[in-house]
Amino acid sequence: MENTIVEDLCELTEYTRGKLLFKYLGVSIIAKRLSAIDCEMLVQKMIMKVKIWGTMNLSYAGRVKLVNLGLLHMNTYWHSMFVLSKGY
């Protein structure tokens, strides 16, 4: 739409124009490629999972298996939902 029409609509409805940002399952939904900053949440979640799983009373091999599978599935989920930046 033309900017004049959008401005008129905002004036009539008393709404302000903003960005369409919302979260679904804790992830910001955007229509473009996720930037490195947006992917930082993924990295932080992975680090938290590794820290939590590392303290469990499991054998070393059990912790390694849990971490590898958990991180693999988390990464696969994010790649299926979003276009990630090349840095991640």
Results as ranks from 00 to 15, higher is better:
Val6Gly: 05
Leu72Pro: 01
Leu71Ser: 09
Gln44Trp: 06
Cys39Ile: 04
Thr4Asp: 10
Lys49Asn: 05
Leu42Gly: 08
Trp78Met: 13
Ile47Ser: 10
Ile29Tyr: 14
Thr13Gly: 02
Tyr24Glu: 13
Thr55Gln: 11
Thr13Asp: 03
Trp53Glu: 01
Leu25Ser: 15
Glu14Pro: 02
Gln44Pro: 06
Met48Ser: 07
Thr55Met: 15
Arg63Cys: 00
Thr76Tyr: 14
Asn75Phe: 15
Gly26Ala: 05
Glu2Leu: 11
Met74Ser: 09
Ile29Ala: 11
Cys10Leu: 06
Leu66Phe: 01
Leu72Gly: 08
Phe82Gly: 00
Gly87Asp: 13
Tyr15Arg: 05
Tyr15Asp: 07
Lys45Asp: 09
Thr4Phe: 12
Val67Phe: 00
Thr16Phe: 04
Leu66Met: 01
Leu12Trp: 07
Leu66Tyr: 01
Glu11Lys: 15
Thr16Lys: 09
Tyr77Met: 09
Ser28Arg: 15
Val6Ala: 08
Trp78Ile: 05
Leu71Val: 00
Lys65Gly: 02
Asn3His: 05
Ser80Met: 10
Ala61Gln: 04
Leu66Glu: 01
Glu14Gly: 03
Thr13Phe: 02
Met56Trp: 06
Cys39Tyr: 01
Met81Phe: 11
Lys51Asp: 08
Met56Gly: 07
Asp8Phe: 15
Cys10Asp: 06
Ile37His: 09
Met74Trp: 11
Leu9Val: 03
Arg17Tyr: 14
Gln44Gly: 07
Leu58Val: 01
Ile37Gly: 06
His79Trp: 13
Ser59Val: 02
Glu14Leu: 13
Asp8Ser: 13
Cys39Thr: 02
Leu66Gln: 03
Val50Tyr: 01
Glu11Val: 04
Lys19Gln: 12
Phe82Trp: 05
Glu40Asp: 12
Gly87Gln: 15
Lys65Val: 02
Leu42Asp: 06
Ala36Glu: 03
Lys19Thr: 10
Thr16Arg: 13
Leu71Asp: 01
